[in-house]
């Protein structure tokens, strides 16, 4: 399973423009990150909060619904978060011009 985890992280990391891959618990604990420990912790703190807030919004709009993916587009980056009730997969990308 450790091998699967490392393979998955390597595969995602090798995609074009990917800056970091981080896997978190829903509380923001860092399971694995390709960023520095400090950055990983920051991602954990901020993105677990984002996931909670976004999840609350989804639930309030439709009590039967559930958040599964969040994508934030900024001028310089794209942040993608795939999540379920327990874990978050965070990929930070710098979009490349073709």
């Amino acid at each position: 399973n450790h091998i699967d985890l490392d393979e998955t992280i390597n595969r995602l990391s090798s995609k074009k423009g990917v800056e970091s891959v981080t896997i978190l618990t829903k509380e923001g604990g860092v399971i694995r990150t390709t960023a520095t420990a400090e950055q990983g912790e920051l991602h954990g703190k901020l993105l677990s909060k984002l996931a909670r807030d976004a999840g609350d919004i989804v639930e309030q709009l439709d009590g039967q619904d559930e958040l599964s993916f969040v994508r934030i587009r900024t001028k310089r980056h794209e942040v993608m978060v795939a999540l379920d009730q327990d874990y978050l997969l965070v990929v930070i990308q710098t979009p490349q011009k073709d």
Binding site: D4, R11, K15, G17, A82, Y87, L88, L89, V91, Q93
Partner: peptide, 26 residues
């Protein structure tokens, strides 16, 4: 405990496919 759990493996499999598709169709 987390990394060794079936629960986590299932998450990783689903989540990585979603993100990978998003990256590929970017």
């Amino acid at each position: 405990g987390i990394v060794g759990s079936a629960r986590f493996s299932g998450f990783l499999d689903r989540a990585s496919r979603v993100v990978e598709r998003a990256l590929d169709t970017d």
